[in-house]
């Protein structure tokens, strides 16, 4: 058997091992996995039904404070619903919203960006101008306006977030495709008669995955944050859906009486977003050496 040279290792292995050595990135990954598991196994993990109203158990404080009981570890809200259960189910909602909106933005952004970067010229100018226009709406305002027009619902919030995220994917893919399409292997592919679509999606795009993966991870973080903000404003998830942002909005009226109702959903948002940001930063260090500092 031929001896293995270090050069024979797939570069991805190096990147993975580098990621593994980055303790903060691994911590982020662990946090994300915990939230994903919560989302998937929510019915098994949560002690109570998240939307079951229990009027005898209104505003019970967390178990460790006076008057709390182990029945509702994180306490209950003004309708007697178990906060821990709502947070566990909330992971499902938030992750799903992030998955759908980032997924949509990823697909459309990649298609738009690769076509724009590959064909260049007039088409590129027009597409990039359009992207600039979307980017000239301040963060979250466009999403608010879209939902305000379409009507408040979780689906529309996802759609709105997807629209606002298309530009960042389109720009990254375009820049990578512009760079890659000058290289010899693309010329080789063209010489053997490959069609444009094949060149873009089979030859070029796999080589642009690094920055795309980084952007996707970081977008998951901001999508969770934006979806929570929209729901907080009453434009996303509608009651009685267990959603972290919406639960914080409900708790505003209780700030004088029951601070625990607002504390835990906020910590859940912070934790989930932090997890994706930690992993995103680690991935950037591993996959995108140009951005390393």
């Amino acid at each position: 058997m031929a001896q293995k040279h270090p050069e024979d290792r797939h570069p991805m292995l190096d990147q993975l091992s580098q990621l593994w050595r980055n303790r903060t990135a691994v911590a982020g990954l662990v946090v994300i996995i915990v939230f994903i598991l919560c989302g998937i196994f929510a019915p098994a993990l949560s002690p109570h039904d998240p939307i079951d109203v229990a009027l005898y158990d209104q505003l019970k404080p967390p178990a460790w404070s006076e008057g709390g009981s182990t029945k509702n570890i994180l306490g209950t809200d003004d309708l007697g619903r178990d906060i821990l259960s709502r947070i566990i189910y909330g992971a499902r909602v938030s992750l799903l919203v992030a998955l759908v909106s980032v997924g949509l933005a990823f697909c459309f952004g990649t298609i738009i960006g690769s076509i724009s970067g590959y064909y260049k010229g007039r088409l590129d100018d027009i597409v990039m101008r359009g992207i600039d226009i979307i980017l000239s709406f301040p963060y979250i305002l466009l999403a608010i306006v879209v939902v305000a027009y379409l009507g408040p619902s979780l689906q529309n919030a996802m759609l709105a977030i997807a629209i606002t995220y298309v530009p960042r994917f389109a720009r990254i893919v375009r820049a990578s495709v512009l760079e890659e399409s000058e290289k010899d292997y693309v010329m080789a592919a063209r010489a053997i008669g490959a069609r444009d679509l094949r060149i873009i999606f089979v030859a070029i795009l796999p080589n642009c995955m690094g920055p795309l993966i980084v952007q996707t991870t970081l977008s998951f973080a901001s999508a969770i944050l934006d979806a929570a903000a929209l729901s907080f404003l009453g434009l996303g998830a509608q009651p009685p859906t267990p959603e972290w942002g919406a639960d914080i909005a409900r708790s505003r009226a209780l700030i004088l009486r029951a601070s625990w109702v607002m504390t835990f959903p906020g910590l859940a948002i912070l934790g989930a977003v932090l997890g994706f940001n930690l992993l995103g930063d680690g991935l950037r260090d591993a996959l995108d050496p140009r951005l390393r500092d």
Partner: peptide, 22 residues
Amino acid sequence: ALAGVSMPIFWLGLVFMLIFSV
């Protein structure tokens, strides 16, 4: 700083309110 970037500010505002006002 990473926590700051990940912060839901609508929640942080309420936490500030709870601590410094209430």
